[in-house]
């Protein structure tokens, strides 16, 4: 596959809409006009290339201050592939999250929960040759938001990926299985397709877990594939 081949359209229902009544912040921020389809060019099929030399890794979010942050230490690991199952090697993965009490190290976060001076909450890692990534952090806490009465975000870690072309740019959130808040969250439920929603939920993984040290969670990420779909090629 050429590294400038256009990316395929998204599968129906697997991406959230811009206008979603249940999520109040969309009301004044979604365009009213339909998006204008753009035939991809090199401006979309190519993208930035980051290296750890210029964008140093932050692989252990618990070691970014003098002391250790409070909370449950966890390991998050997974694989970044495209829709054809091809690994995406050497690609930058940014993460950020709230502390164990559900508060971000952010001046605009006014949630009445303790700040943790030992947890800035930023991570940055690169995938290896097979697309694997891994970082160490603490399990974030749930926090309230004002979207509706008694609204709480499910526990989540934010992810940012670039892939190999700017049309693959992805911002998403990783959730935890069994979180009762998932059923109530309009952002999670903005995704119509149940399978696509479920793939945002990480799974406890004993192989990632390290004895006497930390639980492990697996979160695999799939970026858009290039070229015609295998289905179309079969016809």
């Amino acid at each position: 596959m050429s590294d400038t081949a256009p990316f395929r359209p998204f599968a129906a229902g697997t991406q959230p809409p811009l206008d979603h009544a249940a999520y109040g912040s969309t009301h004044l921020r979604h365009p009213k006009r339909a998006l204008r389809p753009l035939a991809q060019t090199v401006s979309e099929t190519t993208g930035p290339h980051f290296t750890p030399a210029l964008f140093p890794e932050i692989g252990d979010l618990t070691k970014q201050a003098k002391g250790e942050p409070l909370g449950e230490r966890i390991i998050v690991a997974g694989r970044v592939t495209d829709e054809d199952g091809r690994p995406i090697p050497n690609t930058m993965v940014e993460v950020w999250q709230a502390n164990a009490a559900g508060r971000y190290a952010h001046p605009r976060d006014t949630h009445d929960a303790p700040a943790d001076p030992n947890f800035p909450g930023e991570g940055r890692v690169f995938t290896d040759a097979q697309g694997h990534y891994r970082f160490v952090t603490i399990k974030p806490g749930a926090y309230p938001w004002r979207n509706h009465h008694n609204a709480w975000r499910p526990v989540h870690i934010h992810f940012s990926l670039f892939g190999t072309g700017f049309a693959q740019r992805l911002i998403t959130q990783m959730y935890f299985s069994g979180d009762p808040l998932l059923a109530l969250d309009p952002i999670y439920h903005g995704i119509a397709d149940a399978g696509a929603r479920d793939r945002l939920v990480s799974r406890f993984d004993l192989d990632i877990t390290e004895p006497e040290w930390a639980l492990g969670y697996r979160f695999d990420i799939v970026l858009r594939g290039r070229g015609a779909t295998p289905f179309e090629e079969a016809h």
Binding site: S25, E83, V222
Partner: peptide, 10 residues
């Protein structure tokens, strides 16, 4: 093969 991972707000 699974479809691309869903986007969520930043």
């Amino acid at each position: 093969m699974p479809a691309a991972t869903a986007s969520q707000t930043i």
